[in-house]
Simulated scan of single mutants.
Amino acid sequence: MTENAIEIAADSALLVIDVQKGFDDAPFWGNRDNPDAEENIAALMDAWRETGRPVVLVRHASLRPGSVLAPDHSGHAFKDFVGDRLGQEALLVTKTVNSSFYGTPDLDGWLRASGIGQLVVTGIQTNMCVETTARMAGNLGYEVLVPLDATHTFDLAGPDGLSLTAAELAAATAVNLQGGGFARVLTTAAVLDAAAAAAHTP
Score class of each variant (00 low, 15 high):
residue 177 L to M: 09
residue 182 F to S: 08
residue 8 I to N: 03
residue 61 A to T: 07
residue 154 F to T: 02
residue 142 Y to E: 04
residue 16 V to L: 06
residue 21 K to A: 14
residue 59 R to C: 07
residue 143 E to Y: 07
residue 60 H to I: 06
residue 27 P to E: 02
residue 138 G to V: 04
residue 122 T to C: 13
residue 109 G to W: 05
residue 91 L to V: 08
residue 29 W to D: 07
residue 80 D to P: 01
residue 183 A to D: 00
residue 130 V to R: 01
residue 187 T to R: 15
residue 115 G to R: 08
residue 96 T to N: 07
residue 37 A to P: 01
residue 64 R to W: 09
residue 93 V to S: 01
residue 181 G to F: 08
residue 74 S to A: 15
residue 35 P to N: 10
residue 17 I to G: 03
residue 120 V to I: 15
residue 101 F to C: 02
residue 103 G to C: 08
residue 23 F to H: 07
residue 114 S to I: 01
residue 119 L to M: 09
residue 169 L to F: 06
residue 131 E to I: 07
residue 120 V to Y: 00
residue 119 L to T: 10
residue 77 A to E: 15
residue 126 T to V: 11
residue 87 G to T: 10
residue 170 A to S: 15
residue 125 Q to D: 14
residue 29 W to K: 05
residue 147 P to I: 11
residue 86 L to V: 11
residue 46 D to H: 05
residue 118 Q to N: 10
residue 54 P to F: 08
residue 191 V to Q: 00
residue 108 D to A: 14
residue 115 G to K: 09
residue 156 L to H: 12
residue 62 S to A: 13
residue 41 I to R: 04
residue 195 A to E: 08
residue 139 N to Y: 08
residue 199 A to I: 06
residue 148 L to C: 06
residue 18 D to E: 14
residue 101 F to Y: 03
residue 182 F to D: 07
residue 129 C to E: 11
residue 175 V to W: 03
residue 44 L to G: 02
residue 180 G to N: 10
residue 164 L to F: 15
residue 155 D to W: 05
residue 18 D to R: 10
residue 63 L to P: 03
residue 83 G to I: 10
residue 197 A to V: 02
residue 162 L to N: 12
residue 40 N to D: 06
residue 119 L to N: 04
residue 188 T to A: 01
residue 39 E to N: 12
residue 37 A to N: 06
residue 12 S to T: 15
residue 78 F to V: 05
residue 158 G to C: 02
residue 122 T to K: 05
residue 37 A to M: 13
residue 136 M to H: 15
residue 45 M to A: 07
residue 122 T to G: 05
residue 9 A to T: 06
residue 70 A to P: 00
residue 45 M to Q: 03
residue 139 N to I: 13
residue 25 D to T: 06
residue 53 R to A: 07
residue 111 L to Y: 02
residue 24 D to V: 04
residue 148 L to D: 03
residue 32 R to N: 11
residue 26 A to G: 00
residue 182 F to L: 12
residue 172 A to N: 15
residue 33 D to M: 09
residue 110 W to Q: 03
residue 107 L to A: 03
residue 44 L to W: 00
residue 200 H to L: 14
residue 177 L to S: 04
residue 189 A to S: 13
residue 200 H to R: 14
residue 96 T to G: 09
residue 86 L to R: 14
residue 76 H to D: 11
residue 39 E to L: 11
residue 200 H to E: 15
residue 46 D to A: 12
residue 46 D to V: 12
residue 25 D to P: 00
residue 45 M to Y: 01
residue 147 P to L: 06
residue 160 D to Y: 12
